[in-house]
Design a protein around this nucleic acid. Structure first.
Lengths: 149, 149
DNA sequence: TCCATGTAGTCAACTTGGTTGTCTAACCTT
DNA sequence: AAGGTTAGACAACCAAGTTGACTACATGGA
């Protein structure tokens, strides 16, 4: 049996490909994974560009580029930080929230198909197992998200 | 709970980081993941550059670059294809096999620690579950390996 | 209060790791 | 023998990151 990371990489790739294909079928602007992860992150907490970079596992400069794209395309906007004049909070626009909602549904569908293929229990075990491992390795601080290739 | 792909990506990243750290600690030349995947692939079957590209999920040109690096560094060598004068088989040198063996041990260690953290059963379920999903999606042809970011 | 150190964000130069496109030589039909 | 396909190489290009430098602001002592 292949080592775990290869299984992870292949599954990640396989699911991502399917996701992307369906987005295109539907005709929705296909953003890259990183953009989606930013949405999901912003839904949970107010964050600056630096926060986002850390979450993604890239430099703040790389994060800034992504944020600027999302800003241009109307998915996020920047508002002044209440106490720190250097910083800006990046927040989701309605368009951004809508996209996220749509993507979430799509993910649910894919996950449901996965559950059908390998069993709901197995899938649940996978999810909780991976989450537990991450907790074990990283404790409570954020693990980087960008796959190193 | 986060969607499955995020868990996959984070776990992949987390394990890869640990792997890389330990390689460095030991002082072993830290190749990139792609190189390791090539070794593993070559252990199983004779393959050309095109085969390798397909396995990795990149173009043959990108694969050629990787193969050339490995060749320069002495991990693989190219030998003429027995029947096809255009093609070359890429094969592991002793150095390549040694590296692979070493990396395999390291992966076993990491996997053992993972088993300790989340339980051997859980880990087994994860592995067989992911493998089953890949089988379900791709049948018998090789899934691409490179994570799309 | 002032100063030293640290941080958010931006700009610019560069690197990496891919891509597409093109070509040649060899292969494989029919 | 002819027409279409394929392996590999070469080149031009591109995308997405990096490092490094700089400004403006923040923060925590002496």
């Amino acid at each position: 049996m292949e080592p775990v990371p290869m299984l992870l990489a292949m599954t990640y790739r396989a699911m991502g490909d399917q996701f992307h294909d369906r987005l295109r079928q539907i005709g929705l602007e296909p953003l890259r994974p990183a953009h989606g992860y930013v949405f999901r992150f912003l839904k949970e907490k107010r964050a600056t560009t630096v926060d986002i970079g850390q979450h993604l596992g890239v430099t703040k400069q790389a994060a800034a580029k992504i944020v600027n794209e999302l800003d241009e395309w109307g998915y996020v906007l920047k508002e002044p930080h209440p106490t720190d004049k250097r910083a800006q909070y990046v927040t989701l626009t309605t368009k951004g929230r809508d996209y996220l909602k749509f993507a979430d549904n799509l993910w649910s569908d894919l996950e449901a198909e996965m559950a059908e293929a390998i069993g709901r229990n197995t899938l649940d075990t996978i999810k909780t197992g991976l989450a537990a491992y991450l907790q074990h390795v990283h404790g409570d601080d954020q693990p980087g998200l960008r796959p190193v290739w």
